[in-house]
Amino acid sequence: MTTIIYIALILMAFGMLLSFIRFVKGPNTADRTVALDTLTTIGTAALVLLGYMFHRYIYVDVALIYAVLGFIGVIVIARYLEGAL
């Protein structure tokens, strides 16, 4: 079981790394924001998995909040790019 969690975490870390590279390279703002969005989603999943690793149910609340608020952060940047602000 632990092995599986380890593999999962390492895969997610690689996913984060690749998104981060895209964030550094991304030619324009939207690309970077996509990278941020992906990082947030992977981070949310990672938070749930880590909560399982620590065996604390209450830790999951943090993931819940990230799932909701990360989205609003992206909307903010999208609205700025649209020129609506």
Binding site: I58, D61, V62, I65, V68, I75, V76
Partner: peptide, 24 residues
């Protein structure tokens, strides 16, 4: 008082909800 979080965090989340409406 039972789970992580509290007044500040809850307040920030509510304010963020208003932010979403103001933006949209």
């Amino acid at each position: 008082h039972l789970t992580p979080g509290g007044g500040f965090q809850g307040g920030v989340i509510i304010a963020t909800g208003f932010l979403l409406m103001l933006l949209a």
